[in-house]
Design a binder for these strands. Structure first.
Length: 574
RNA sequence: GCAUCGAUGGUCUAGUGGUAUGACUUAGGCCUUCCAAGCCUAUAGCCCGGGUUCAAUUCCCGGUCGAUGCACCA
């Protein structure tokens, strides 16, 4: 079979040659961490994004939103990215080496250096030697190297902006609008597909670590006390290969487990997380990820964010890169919404009415201002406030006003027990976040679809892409480039296009060569117009994977292809 | 970011201090009645900048990109 060590080279070679993925702006030498999607790559990417939409928008009923890529600073102060998404660095004045300032300090016995401010760190390291050139650093400047790209909004750079490092924040900042849109009820979800940016220090590994990448994220807002998914039965019996914390600690392989069982035995924190694990499994397999090269690994306690209740990565096996995290599914609790509540001062909660309004009794103290006013004059207001906040005894009570104790007798206020009705309560929802790296999914699908096989002593390269993902869905080929065959073929192309099928016409070279050309880019079906077509208006339809052919009528072939692409018919059933 | 190595048509490759070999691909033509057949023709290349030199794709320095190791990293 294939020498696996260079499968990456083969795929990237094919991707470059045939217009899937190109290094960006090659005429100026490209830039690491950025790629261009060529004609077939863009098409395939869109197909994968639409497959994603089929699950999250059509099946789940969550609507998509689209927020700016540039966000103002407050957003990322709240999210923690301004502070936490950066490293403290300095540059050695002697050798110009960039260094991690906190690492230098810690190497010389300072503990907790990573949480110190830049000035404290600068003071600490000025007498220390540079780890690269051994010169004493001296009064160097310590600065934050933030992984976010920074920009200025408007002229004169008055306002700092950042390119978003994730699409998620848009769904959080729009929370109140979304809640209103969903008519003030939980649970609801919002999704977003778009570009995110991280200024990686060293973005190697081709399209696995990009500085500009596409994310598809869903934020599902749920009641903190109701983490049973209303449609859980859909995936209750669905098997997913789980690599739990326990199994990782014991060095065991993943085990297939139904979602119902995993939740019951406590492996997965709740039904919501389990539901999206299963949905993700189904989604990834449907776009062409090999299920034997897919596992769900639970984050170990030390890699999980402190606020997260549970977190799993869908990892896809690459013969080149090993297990690659491609999707993250986390229960982020109320951390994000509370963070924005703090930063913005706005409300990030939902009002949830009780089934029956609750009665609450409360002791209420009403100060007699007519009596307090003349007695305490300027201090009357403070006395009244102190009274309202306390529960007096039978002989009144003593409050401290301006540092002095003051005794208030019962004739200066009245005490009443009040029964009030409380209709509901404010709840800050918990957030379930499935987050997909589209570019990594594309790479995984390419790697898992790529096959080489021997046919009649010749090597055949074929991308076994699912028909719905393939960039070209049908090739229409006149067997001979004459005798009226090209004309019929062009009619068939037009008919297919009218059905919304991506069809390509090719009359160049021997028929076998044309099949191979299509095989290499994953075109699932090929229609060949031959001499019989002129007699009886039938053509051959070839299946990419089996290379089998059947004869079908020209009439209605466009909609036949559409049914095959959409999976409503199978070639084997023709 | 550091260290080491590398970069020749779209792809793979030969080779050189005097502008470059072959194959595949692609395009046009001939041929061809279903899986990369054959023939003719054409297109297209020494990563970028600087230096040494009469002359640099070749030697030197810097950069970019890529590979590997270290560092870093959701």
């Amino acid at each position: 079979m294939i020498a696996m060590s260079d499968i990456y080279e083969k795929i990237m070679d094919l991707a470059k040659r045939r217009g899937f993925i190109w290094p960006t702006s090659e005429c100026y030498g490209s830039v690491a961490g950025f790629i261009d999607y060529g004609p077939l790559g863009s098409m395939m990417k869109r197909n994968i994004e639409n497959a994603w939409r089929k699950f999250y928008i059509i099946q789940e009923g969550y609507y998509e939103i689209e927020c700016p890529i540039i966000g103002q600073e407050d957003i990322f102060i709240a999210s923690g990215h301004v502070k936490g998404f950066s490293d403290k660095m300095c540059q050695c004045p002697s050798c110009r080496e960039f260094l991690r300032a906190d690492h230098i300090a810690e190497a010389h016995g300072v503990t907790g250096a990573s949480v110190l401010g830049t000035e404290d760190l600068a003071r600490l390291i000025c007498s220390l030697p540079c780890p690269a050139c051994e010169e004493v650093l001296g009064p160097v400047e310590v600065f934050n190297f933030n992984l976010m790209f920074q920009t200025a909004i408007g002229p004169g750079s008055q306002r700092r902006g950042y390119l978003r490092p994730e699409t998620a924040q848009g769904m959080f900042t729009d929370f109140q609008r979304l809640l209103r849109f969903y008519r003030d009820r939980l649970p609801f979800g919002a999704v977003q597909i778009g570009k995110s940016f991280r200024n990686e220090i060293s973005p190697r590994q081709g399209m696995i670590r990009l500085r500009e990448f596409t994310q598809a994220e869903a934020e599902i807002f749920v009641h903190p006390g109701e983490k049973d998914h209303p449609a859980f039965s859909r995936y209750e019996g669905y098997f997913v290969p789980l690599l739990s914390i326990t199994r990782q600690e014991e060095d065991l392989p993943p085990v297939n487990c139904t979602m119902g069982e995993a939740v019951r035995e406590g492996t997965i924190a709740n039904q919501y997380v389990a539901y999206y694990l299963a949905l993700t499994h189904q989604l990834l397999v449907s776009i062409g990820v090999n299920p034997d090269k897919l596992r769900f690994r639970q984050h170990l306690p030390d890699e999980r964010a402190h606020y997260a209740e549970d977190c799993w990565d869908a990892e896809v096996f690459s013969d080149r890169f090993g297990w690659v995290e491609t999707v993250g599914i986390a229960d982020r609790t109320d951390y994000d919404l509370r963070a924005h509540e703090r930063q913005s001062g706005e409300r990030f909660s939902a009002f949830i009415p009780y089934d029956i309004p609750r009665k609450e009794s409360r002791i209420r103290v009403t100060p007699d201002m007519g009596a307090l006013g003349p007695r305490f004059r300027g201090e009357a207001r403070a006395v009244a406030e102190a009274l309202c906040a306390s529960i007096p005894g039978p002989d009144g009570l003593t409050v401290t006003i301006g540092g002095k104790p003051v005794h208030i007798t019962p004739d200066l206020y009245t005490v009443k027990e009040e029964i009030s009705e409380v209709p509901g309560t404010d709840v800050v929802p918990h957030v379930i976040e499935p987050s997909y790296g589209i570019d990594r999914m594309i790479y995984a699908v390419l790697e898992h679809s790529y096959f080489e096989e021997m046919v009649d002593g010749e090597e055949r390269r074929v991308l076994r892409l699912p028909p719905g993902i393939a960039p070209v869905q049908v090739a229409v080929l006149p067997l001979m480039n004459r005798d009226g065959l090209p004309e019929i073929a062009r009619e068939i192309v037009d008919g297919a296009r009218e059905e919304g099928v991506i069809a390509e016409y090719d009359d160049s070279g021997a028929i076998g060569r044309r099949y191979r050309r299509q095989d290499e880019v994953g075109t699932p079906f090929a229609i060949t117009v031959d001499y019989e077509t002129r007699e009886d208006r039938t053509v051959t339809l070839r299946d990419r994977d089996s290379m089998r052919q059947v004869r079908v009528p020209v009439e209605g072939i466009g909609s036949l292809i559409r049914s095959l692409v959409e999976g409503r018919l199978s070639f084997a059933g023709l």
